[in-house]
Design a protein around this nucleic acid. Structure first.
Lengths: 346, 346
DNA sequence: ACAAAAAATGTGCTCGAACACACTTAAATA
DNA sequence: TATTTAAGTGTGTTCGAGCACATTTTTTGT
């Protein structure tokens, strides 16, 4: 009754050979209308699911997947990806899957293009990219596609029909989440959106978050908030911030669009006479410390680990099981406070 | 170089037959010390991973898994589990896995025991239980174990060495998360922990959450909060609550330990002169509506869908791939506001 | 009508692990 | 020493899908 039907079963039921059933199933042609009819009749009645185990046994090709991301030693934001990759490798080590990780220097465009060339020389079956540099990424994607190498991306969205899958987060929405959080903890007041200028470009990231943040408040115009955008540049972060705070004594909350909230937290925690609320991104150590100290109120988790893990998983499932991969996978925007942070770490 | 070694390869390298290698790998005995030595030497050098695909091909047993949970029509809390089960079934339908779902009436102990008996008659290979009734669960587990049926649990934790795996949440910690949230949005004030008395027993659930909640505040004794526990009984919920609010004009926040926060939200939203903050559990429709209306500030997501999904997945992986399952899997305690709720729904 | 070409169909082998069973060699017993 | 018993080893088959190739049937052309 609940038996799993095999091709042999279908062949017997239809009164043909398994070769014919196989041709029908794979639309390989060379089947008479009569035989086609008979097989289809059986297929309509029973619920045939090919046995994935048997299907893949024969296919002893080793699939090579390369994953390219910024060097976590230069930007610790990418550190959790390593574990995500490890998890995926562990999960699929019993299959013919070979995953190789490549790092590039996020501060240097050249490093990105060079690493892509190294990967191309390996001629893998698929590449998973963290596409930091827009133009160079498009070039790389074109090149990969011409060599029939599948390209998927994670973390940063790049519009291209050549990309099969993107895993990341809706940055606009994450800006809205941050806005709602500040709206919940502050009745009114002056809020600063702080972009800390990185040497490399994640400007689009920061802009999208700001857009979402402002969008939330623009929908509630009756609310009594003043919102200022503050761009801080690398050597002068602390000085500029201190000046801003003393010039704006009504400052009640800040939203930091990068993972550098701890830098702001340090300055703000030194102000003893009032509490300025802080919302930032990413569970890097310094941020979590400040969360536990009560200096940072919330962090938004971008789940890089799962991004990398899912990106690889989709590729493996594509190769091994011919599964359809969704064009875009948006991970949940996790809200973190001191009490639930543990569960999202490692 | 990166070739996958097979048993045949090992046999050739060790100068024995694949039968001998097989006996060594599975410790089936009947191997001479000399042969054992030779095979082990090869195994030490190469990194052998058995091909899971081939291993399972031969094993054409159909594994039957029964999952037992409260009827979602009676308690909508369990509704997301259906989707979690569906997802798991979909994922494993190509393998020999048969999942059958059973509902019991959470208000009737007898219904629980009866359904367990129905399952036992089916003699499945494993059962995944939502163990609502403590004593009856222990009896059922004992019975299952004596019949060599694997028992795993989800949602509710039951101490028993016979259980291979539990998937759920740390309720104590989730109480702490709620406490931290109220601590973040309220500077001071009177807070009420509200237990809405269900007809059936989830008393342990509610107690653990309260314990965690109070534990958080007990650690910060310098804070200016007053915490009251309020038990509301079914027909008089609204009246008792209204009385409490008028008797306690300093009430600033409530923490509802069940999924019935919307009931409280209704009453509280009618109070126009002040804002009482509300934190509750579970993304059921009425709660999410109140989240969007701004009446409920935060919901804590218990991720029932994933609980059911993971519970089944662990069993399948145990049967199919002989994977070790962790004794306890604690899901993250997701904090939900109006802006990120979408991502956790379905 | 008959050979040749084309179309349709069936057979048989492969993948790797698992295990039953046949077989060989060594040890134990009379 | 002959014979039983045990220990050790190798061979061969199975699982289901996929595909190459052999075989059969039908169609086409002369």
């Amino acid at each position: 009754m609940n038996k799993k039907y095999t091709i042999k079963d279908i062949a017997k039921l239809a009164g043909v050979s398994k070769g014919t059933v196989d041709r029908v199933l794979h639309k390989r042609g060379k089947v008479s209308p009569l035989a086609l009819e008979k097989v289809n009749e059986v297929l309509n009645v029973i619920d045939y699911e090919p046995n994935l185990i048997a299907r893949n046994l024969k296919n002893n090709k080793i699939y090579q997947i390369c994953i390219l991301l910024p060097d976590p030693e230069i930007d610790p934001y990418w550190l959790p990806c390593i574990q995500g990759i490890k998890d995926a490798v562990q999960e699929f080590k019993a299959y013919n899957i070979l995953v190789e990780t490549f790092y590039f220097n996020p501060e240097k465009t050249k490093s990105f293009t060079n690493t892509n060339e190294t990967i191309i020389e390996k001629s893998p079956d698929a590449v998973l990219l963290a596409p930091l540099f827009h133009k160079e990424t498009l070039d790389a994607i074109k090149k990969y596609d011409s060599l029939n190498i599948i390209v998927n991306t994670f973390n940063n969205q790049v519009e291209s029909t050549l990309i099969k899958n993107f895993v990341g987060q809706d940055l606009f929405r994450s800006g809205r989440v941050a806005a709602k959080l500040l709206n919940t903890i502050l009745i009114r007041g002056h809020i600063a959106i702080i972009h800390i200028d990185e040497t490399y470009k994640n400007a689009i990231h920061m802009q999208e978050k700001e857009r979402g943040f402002r969008n939330y408040f623009s929908e509630k115009e009756d609310l009594d908030y003043k919102i200022t955008t503050l761009k801080l540049k690398s050597p002068n972060v602390e000085v500029t911030l201190k000046n801003f705070i003393s010039e704006n004594p009504d400052l009640a909350g800040v939203f930091i669009t990068t993972s550098k909230a701890y830098q702001i937290a340090k300055t703000i925690s030194e102000i003893k006479d009032k509490k300025i609320r802080i919302i930032g991104y990413d569970l890097i150590d310094e941020n979590v410390n400040n969360l536990n100290l009560g200096v940072i109120d919330f962090l938004i988790h971008q789940n890089q680990k799962r991004q990398a893990y899912l990106g690889i998983t989709y590729l493996v499932e594509h190769f091994l099981f011919h599964k359809e991969t969704p064009a875009v996978t948006l991970l949940p925007i996790d809200i973190i406070n001191s009490e639930n942070a543990d569960f999202y770490l490692e």
